[in-house]
Design a protein around this nucleic acid. Structure first.
Lengths: 159, 159
DNA sequence: ACCAATCGCTGGCATTGCCAATGAATAGGG
DNA sequence: CCCTATTCATTGGCAATGCCAGCGATTGGT
């Protein structure tokens, strides 16, 4: 029986949902404050990742990919655009749509962000063997996948 | 390359902090809505767990255990007290302190909550083998432990 | 008796997630 | 071609959450 065992009730320590919530909160604040030094929040980082990896896309698709509320997306994009990290161009073939493109400045900042996170995660999981961190990630990803495919079947692919 | 692989950028799929945040959000909403049917939020559930497992305690200690803001704790307790799930009695030996005690109604509701969560988690991790869920929990708990002991060394044990 | 610290409590602020409504633009049916 | 329905981006509001500053009552130390 260690010190930490005594801190949390066993009823909570043995509840996966609770433990995950706690860990995520820890991870969230830890990583969010790093990104904040670049003027980004987690969603903005994710948005930049999307545009960098998949190329230009319209807001609807980015929102679908990241499971973001389309309204919230707008305000995130506003800040990204003001900082000239992305461009927003109307699609000439469908003038309702805004085509999002990451700028070179955006790509540079994204690389900085990735470096920051690459440093932050080892701190977060300090002491835990790399193999176990990877295992944790793999298991979590597995659960996410199932839900993602479920949602995908229900409302069709965004692309 | 599965369908889900294509959804999220690899840069995010391979970032443990991101995956954990997504999974926790999923878990959060899933479990929170179950608890809501009993009029509880996650913190109130955790509070009841504490009082049930460790017996009566003062607010300071519950807040320390669950890492809750003492101000937020007050409002959670207010609702628990109104619902007569807990009692708040002034400590006669230190009249600043409020001694929290779970009532029998509180214990009954807690048991209901535990049953709801016992049902909810398998749905959340549907398809993932029990052993892997347990592994996920164990790994997450491990990370939490390290941080808990760190915090514990920094500011002393709450008890 | 005085000063500092503790405890619970109140209120405020920023962030976040979620939902409803709107205007511009397009697509589809007759 | 016109009318209607739908799509897309945008705005605004609401509730929950986390976090922090300050305050009154009470206690402990000197």
């Amino acid at each position: 029986m260690t010190v930490s065992d005594a801190l949390l009730p066993a009823a909570l320590r043995h509840r996966t949902s609770f433990v995950l919530a706690r860990l995520a909160a820890l991870s969230r604040t830890h990583c969010a404050e790093r990104l904040a030094t670049l003027g980004l929040n987690q969603h903005q980082h994710a948005i930049l990742c999307c545009l960098d990896e998949f190329g230009p896309a319209i807001q609807r698709d980015v929102a679908a990919r990241l499971d973001l509320d389309s309204g919230d997306l707008v305000s995130f994009l506003d800040r990204l655009q003001t900082a000239e990290l992305i461009r927003r161009d109307r699609d000439p073939r469908d003038r309702r749509r805004q085509i999002l493109t990451i700028t070179q400045a955006g790509q540079r900042l994204l690389r900085q962000a990735e470096m920051l996170l690459d440093e932050a995660e080892p701190e977060l999981f300090a002491g835990l063997p790399t193999a176990e961190v990877e295992q944790l990630r793999a298991l979590a990803t597995g659960v996410l996948m199932r839900h993602a495919t479920q949602a995908w079947r229900q409302q069709g692919a965004p692309d």
